[in-house]
């Protein structure tokens, strides 16, 4: 089963941390990526800060295109920061891997992925 480990938190909080704390968080990600690489294919996505986002709102009427909004408006609560997706043996296995990147700046959600397709290369 493919599970997604989805990361929520406050955008910009990580950047406000002292270097040593940032390194601690990144060490967790490094370890998880290493473990996933050994097992096979995986993706990891870090979203850029919300300021770079543009939103498409549903079309206001059937004969009109969707609305492109330059938002999102400032969110004071946590936001979607990024995710991992990989094949895991079962929920316990996925949770064990998610634990590797648990930190006070992130709330993690582990959820099975029902559909996946396509390939992407970062280079």
């Amino acid at each position: 089963m493919i599970y997604a480990i989805t990361i929520y938190g406050e955008a910009g909080l990580f950047e406000s941390l002292p270097k040593e704390r940032q390194d601690e968080v990144m060490a967790g990600h490094g370890a998880l990526q290493e473990a996933l690489r050994k097992r096979g294919e995986f993706v990891s996505i870090k979203l850029m800060p919300p300021t770079s986002a543009v939103m498409l709102e549903p079309a206001p009427a059937a004969d009109q295109p969707p609305l492109i909004v330059d938002g999102p408006y400032a969110e004071t609560k946590e936001s979607f920061l990024g995710f991992y997706a990989a094949e895991f043996d079962n929920l316990d296995d996925a949770l064990a891997h998610a634990k590797m990147i648990s930190s006070p700046v992130a709330r993690l959600e582990v959820r099975p992925v029902a559909w996946a397709g396509g390939t992407i290369s970062s280079e």
């Binding site: 406050e10 909080l13 406000s16 704390r21 004071t76 006070p104 700046v105």
Partner: peptide, 16 residues
């Protein structure tokens, strides 16, 4: 722990 909290305060300070 306090580093995380300090980062949160820094982050919220302008709005607050």
């Amino acid at each position: 722990m306090s580093d995380w909290l300090t980062a949160t305060f820094t982050q919220q300070r302008p709005q607050a």
